[in-house]
Amino acid sequence: MSWKTKPSSTMQIPRRAEPYVSPAVAERWEREIVAKYHVRQGALMPILHEIQHEHRCIPYQAMVEVARFLGISPAEVLDCATFYEEFSLEPRGRCTIGICQSIACEACDHKPLLDHCRRTLGIEPGETTSDGAFTLLAMECLGSCDTAPVALFNETLHEKLDVPTVDRLIAQARQVPAGSHHH
């Protein structure tokens, strides 16, 4: 867990003309998400999930618009967005590789996988390649300890991994062109 704060209260946040929370989006969220919670703020995590999924990060402008939509302060949105590891203020790569580093995976040799990713991608855990293709993460237990070592490639879990398989998965992910969506 870590705390990130807006660098300063006078920081200019990047803005674009097109709103993140368009009237159509607001209408759909109202129906599909807000309706499930008896207090509006309850809808915040599902909304942040949607934004993270779509943009691979939570843009500041989107946070301000979501705050207005839910009737809470932007600080409350920032508070939530920075607490959870799955949400990121910096854009994540088109393929996020999350190697499990918890005890069953370390006991079953996760290290060669992590080292291989480091070497092949030239980045450390927590970093994104400069072309925006990959983010490497060292994650805690993914709940699949019986098939250790494991890793998530975006939303897909890969079990009983070895270095050649990781290599193949990285090669496959490279085929995904920039600007497209890969799950």
Binding site: M1, Y37, V39, Q41, G42, A43, L44, M45, L70, I72, E76, D79, C80, T82, F83, Y84
Partner: peptide, 17 residues
């Protein structure tokens, strides 16, 4: 930490856990 029962409640309420 959201596995802790009250952290879990905070998360459903849209807050940090």
């Amino acid at each position: 930490i959201c596995g802790e029962e009250t952290g879990l409640l905070e998360a459903i309420e849209g807050k940090r856990g």
